[in-house]
Simulated scan of single mutants.
Amino acid sequence: MKLGFIGCGNMASAIMGGVIRNGIFRPEEIIGADSYQAALDKAAETLGIQVTTDNRKVAEESEVLVLSVKPQFYEAVIAQIRSVVDENKIVITIAPGKTLEWLGQKFEKPVKIVRTMPNTPALVGEGITAACANIQVSEEELEYVCSILRGFGEVEVIPEHLMDVVVSVSGSSPAYVFMMIEAMADAAVADGMARAQAYRFASQAVLGSAKMVLETGKHPGELKDMVCSPGGTTIEAVRVLEEKGFRSSLFEAMKACAKKAREM
């Protein structure tokens, strides 16, 4: 097998679905393991991959191995598989807080490790993933991993010390955006709009605004100023957001998120 997954949850499924859709791997080149039969059945049915409950089998048969379990299970999973992970395999991790040094210690030998942090928009092919690698990984191997990660969104290689920042600015931030969309829709419903329509208006506004930042290259503050006519409705809304601590709340939430990531 070319690509293996230990853990077949939502993020793993998003990665597998992306690489299959983009022709990077065929379903028959992918194998996944999970302790939950329901997750395996879903992966086999929806993606057509091979599945097993045996983590060691996946580790043995894969050229590239993705550890897509929750952070608290990493130590136990690595203990299960380290004897069958050799110097030719590339291990990709997606767990916050688990540093390259910590991972290397748990494998108890030199292993090629690429630490990554994707986010849930990968489910719709619009994720962004940060990646960093240990010294065992060559530039060519890192680029190969990045080509896999591009199957479900954008990729940026960063220094490892920024990985906890990535958790706060992209890994966890979809939750902040979903909360904002929900609040915007609630307010529209309070003013008489049907809920489904309110979600569409709020979601499209967020999507379009993000595209403006990415595609125009303009500073977000400049784009905000373009909407705020003198004495108009938008600047009045901005005034209230500032009064209620909108930006400060985001700032403090992200600082807390990064701190939690470092402690995991």
Rank of each mutant, 00 (worst) to 15 (best):
L3N: 02
G4S: 04
G4K: 02
A14Q: 04
A14P: 02
M16C: 06
G18Q: 10
V19K: 06
I20N: 11
I20Y: 15
I20H: 09
G23S: 10
R26S: 14
P27H: 04
E28Q: 15
E29T: 02
I31D: 01
A33T: 03
S35C: 15
Q37E: 15
D41T: 02
D41V: 09
A43S: 14
L47W: 03
I49W: 05
T52Q: 04
T53R: 14
D54Y: 09
D54F: 09
N55W: 04
N55D: 12
E60N: 07
E61N: 00
E61P: 01
S68N: 13
F73H: 15
Y74L: 15
Y74A: 13
E75P: 04
E75G: 00
V77C: 11
V77S: 14
R82I: 00
S83W: 09
K89N: 13
K89F: 13
I92F: 03
A95V: 05
K98Q: 09
L100N: 05
E101K: 09
W102A: 05
F107G: 03
P110T: 02
I113A: 00
V114N: 02
M117G: 01
M117A: 11
N119W: 12
T120N: 01
A122H: 05
A122N: 00
E126I: 00
T129P: 06
C132A: 15
A133W: 06
N134V: 00
Q136M: 11
V137S: 07
E139V: 08
E139Q: 14
E143W: 10
L149S: 03
R150K: 11
F152I: 09
V157W: 07
I158H: 03
P159Y: 08
E160K: 00
H161K: 11
D164N: 12
D164Q: 06
V165W: 11
V166Y: 09
V167G: 03
V167D: 03
V169G: 05
G171N: 05
S172M: 10
A175V: 03
Y176I: 05
V177R: 01
V177I: 14
V177A: 12
F178I: 01
M179C: 14
E182I: 07
E182M: 09
A183R: 08
A183C: 09
A183Q: 10
A190S: 08
D191T: 12
D191K: 13
A198G: 12
A202R: 04
S203L: 08
Q204R: 08
V206N: 11
S209P: 07
M212V: 06
G217T: 02
K218M: 01
H219S: 01
P220E: 00
P220N: 04
D225I: 02
D225H: 06
M226A: 13
M226R: 05
C228P: 08
G231S: 08
G232P: 01
T234R: 02
T234D: 07
V238R: 04
L241H: 11
L241C: 09
E243K: 15
K244G: 12
R247I: 01
F251H: 13
A253N: 07
M254L: 08
M254W: 11
C257Y: 08
K260R: 14
M264A: 10
M264V: 00
